[in-house]
Design a binder for these strands. Structure first.
Lengths: 206, 206
DNA sequence: ACGTTCATGTAATCAGTTACATGATTTT
DNA sequence: AAAATCATGTAACTGATTACATGAACGT
């Protein structure tokens, strides 16, 4: 087995949260003010899409479960079969528990980074192109997020402040990833210097 | 609707890869050399755990499907019912397609970051504690990964180089996240300055 | 009248997690 | 002989995605 594999045995990753993130995301949104499934859905398509995307069917399904569990309740109805949900005291308690008692969760999945492990199967040109493309995509996102940040003011409202903090994470993360990808492209270009052709580098079969 | 929500409408996130990442991860690992399900499993528990964790049941199940699809084949058997799989030409072609034709995928999920959106429901102390804890966890991971990096040499073998690039991403990402979390804790402390008690800040109900 | 947006749901499927189950081989 | 490790699988369930389906209200 390779060195990297052996060494990484020390750095263990604990499992993906205690699940239930969508459930708590809905509670968090409803803690601000009552809303319908349709309203909540739009939040998942915009502000929350970067950290926790969710589908329409999932949102409506989860709302039904939350109502069943007594964590939210119907607070009003409107035109077109609209139902507004509000968070209950039990719901607020559960949200608080999730935010304070469940330790932070470092787990994440990235298909883009997974591919980096297998870049050696490509030619040098292809591998470098992949990394440069990744860098470009991240820079583009960074620019878009920065524009959002600079268009509004964030002080005052605590709800807005938290959104701004998350946004700033997105900006820094995109920048960081873009920088890394450019660096990695240069490294790959250098390390695989003696392998210019279409042929992927041969694996050492030991 | 709040400003953040409106503004973020511009920054759309395309869906989570074209799925199938585990499938391609297995192909990538087998592209290096033949291995058994058990061998592959250990890779997912170590080097790949940071970017794409996978369970035992999932690995064995996916191997059966890959074999069925003709992307891998049994290349040998050993003691204790062991079967070694090797990648076929079709498998290599599919891996190449995944690495080159499917554009990079920026989507990711983070329960930790999701919680940041709802930190305003906590007292200032609780919110700041959450962020500082997050910073600490990320610094710890950074240190662990740096130790791994500094224990081995990475030049020469292209397979190792790619692992090293991914490892470096983990280090930079952890550092970046830790820095952000410390900064965010300070911001939260400052912005919510006038709210020292146990009481969460009231939401603006407009 | 007609198209769009609002608004909710269901069904089928796939991906991922946890738990259970079994037996062979190697190490102590 | 017992314990640990190697090695594979299945079953039940939860979480997530895609597609289908419907209808009310609003704007033009």
């Amino acid at each position: 087995m390779s060195k990297l594999v052996c060494l990484l045995r020390q750095v263990k990753v604990e499992g993906y949260d205690a699940g239930m993130s969508l459930r708590h995301a809905l509670l968090g949104l409803l803690a601000e003010k009552p809303a319908s499934g349709y309203d909540l859905l739009k939040r998942f398509e915009t502000s929350l899409s970067m950290v926790w995307p969710a589908q329409q069917s999932q949102v409506y399904g989860e709302l039904a479960k939350l109502k069943e569990a007594g964590l939210i309740e119907v607070t009003g109805t409107g035109a077109r079969n609209r139902r507004d949900y509000g968070i209950t005291e039990e719901g607020r308690a559960e949200l608080h528990r999730w935010l304070t008692e469940v330790g932070p969760d470092l787990a994440f999945r990235s298909a883009a980074l997974l591919r980096v492990f297998f870049l050696w199967t490509l030619s040098r040109e292809e591998g470098v192109a992949y990394l440069r493309d990744f860098a470009r995509e991240n820079s583009a996102r960074q620019a878009a997020l920065e524009q959002v940040r600079d268009t509004a003011t964030w002080v005052g409202d605590p709800v807005q402040v938290c959104g701004w903090l998350a946004l700033e994470f997105g900006i820094r993360g995109s920048q960081n990833t873009a920088d890394w990808a450019e660096w990695a492209a240069a490294q790959l270009d250098e390390q695989l210097g003696g392998n210019p052709g279409e042929e992927p580098s041969a694996a050492d079969p030991t």
